[in-house]
Nucleic acid binder design. Structure first.
Lengths: 142, 142
DNA sequence: AATGCAAATGCGAATCATTTGCATTTTTAT
DNA sequence: ATAAAAATGCAAATGATTCGCATTTGCATT
């Protein structure tokens, strides 16, 4: 999935091709961690792609509806961050000092979710988890 | 802590008394689950407390700084929600249908956090966890 | 390759939550 | 009771996101 061309990704989602959509996908593919819309806009500008901000919003909305991206809320940044969907979802360690986002190898929620579904009468369909603290580089300052 | 008077809570945090601060604390104390600022404003109005919205924002900012409340981001509501701090922090099951927030008895993150601190070189100081799905009332509709 | 139509885009204006500046009121210490 | 410091109300500013509409683009058909 990560290796598909942006064009193929669009086809796959039944979305029309456009220079702007391809451009956004290209930028998103280069990211190792989620980015804010601001950062995305910056990267677009740095690449001289010239995409209007309202178009970026609209495209992201379409990507979200077609399950191509994930949108979560990062409390330290006080804003949404987005990333291309991976084969299995990710959680991050977020450094309160340098803001770095470090992916956790695997989602630790399986057992917990199972336990909750058994205990409470609740059907779990999604979850959000983020862990805040200080990364190895910044740990010394605290 | 839950049983302290609003006045005592303010004293405790070294915050001056005011009708507005006392009123907000009273309202927050009555809540069983986090509420949005909008909902808080509604409740204030329903009680005829008459507190200007910008004052509400300023007071909440002060409460937050003095660790009297917790502010998290609820994705289903697409906005922040706040609650008075409890002796130990809480997580919620959030129903995607009726929006109900059901507290989880105890935080399930201890082991996970421990594991992460050992594996990765990262010092964990906080986390956010929310679980989305369908509550017992709404489960039948899905 | 030209044409037509639906969908996507750019642009500027509107919206909505949150923040700010400043005059007035309230709290608290004396 | 009084004065200084802090909190509040109000109206205006801000900043992110959304919307309306004219224009452009992608794509299927000829």
């Amino acid at each position: 999935m990560k290796s598909m061309s942006s064009r193929a990704l669009l086809d796959n989602a039944n979305l029309k091709y456009s220079r702007q959509r391809e451009g956004l996908l290209d930028v998103l593919k280069e990211q190792k961690t989620p980015i804010t819309i601001d950062q995305l806009d910056e990267l677009v500008r740095a690449k001289k792609l010239s995409i209007n901000l309202s178009t970026i919003y609209r495209i992201l909305e379409a990507f979200l509806k077609h399950d191509m991206i994930e949108k979560t809320f990062n409390i330290t940044m006080q804003s949404y961050v987005i990333e291309l969907k991976h084969s299995h979802h990710r959680h991050y360690l977020i450094c309160l000092d340098c803001q770095k986002m470090i992916p956790i190898q695997q989602c630790p929620m399986h057992d917990i979710v199972e336990h909750i579904e058994k205990e409470q009468n609740f059907h779990v369909s999604a979850h959000q988890l983020e862990i805040y603290g200080y990364c190895s580089d910044c740990i010394k300052n605290h």
